[in-house]
């Protein structure tokens, strides 16, 4: 589907028929390239403004599980949103208030708001999401959308379709 605009654009440019195959290959490459870095680009922009937790993503045939390292974050300050195949984990890590008047002389931890958006391996069911926070690790359990599961498409060998082949 997403390939179509790229094909059109290329054929407008040159229109050399001998390059048709080559162009289709190029547009495929462009398509996959453009689809992939969208996630990483927004992640890079996020990284400039805020910090983002390190993530683990694993999957089974029906589920996707995401783990995020978020030590010291109040679970009430974490927001998890799912849209299609996008997962966003955002929130704020607050410094303990007792710290304001004291002398901090060694600091390695990150504080403040964080946000991270990733592209999941597949589309998930936005109504079947659960999140659990334990020992500084957030676990988000997602269910793959029914239509996203890999399906075997049967090929019909009926007489009608055979007669249509050139």
């Amino acid at each position: 589907m997403a390939m179509i605009p790229w094909k059109n654009k290329t054929s407008e440019g040159t229109g050399a028929p001998s390059l048709a195959e080559f162009r289709s290959e190029v547009s495929k490459l462009f398509d996959s390239f453009l689809r992939e870095p969208v996630g990483t680009l927004s992640e890079t922009i996020n990284a400039w403004n805020r910090w983002g937790p390190a993530l683990d993503v694993s999957q089974t045939d029906t589920t996707v599980t995401v783990h995020a390292e978020l030590p010291g974050v109040d679970p009430n300050e974490i927001e998890v949103t799912v849209t299609g195949d996008r997962l966003t984990i955002a929130g704020e890590k607050k410094e303990a208030s007792e710290r304001t008047d004291q002398d901090v002389f060694h600091r390695e931890m990150k504080y403040g708001s964080f946000s991270r958006t990733i592209q999941l391996p597949t589309t998930v069911d936005a109504n079947e999401v659960s999140a659990d926070y334990a020992n500084g690790v957030l676990t988000v359990s997602l269910k793959k959308a029914p239509n996203s599961a890999a399906r075997k498409i049967p090929i019909s060998t009926g007489m009608g379709s055979a007669s249509n082949t050139p």
Partner: peptide
Amino acid sequence: PNVDIFELPGELVVKADMPGAK
């Protein structure tokens, strides 16, 4: 683990990020 160290009048406090530990 990443640590923050800070000083209070009567003690030093070390905080270490150790997610996932038991």
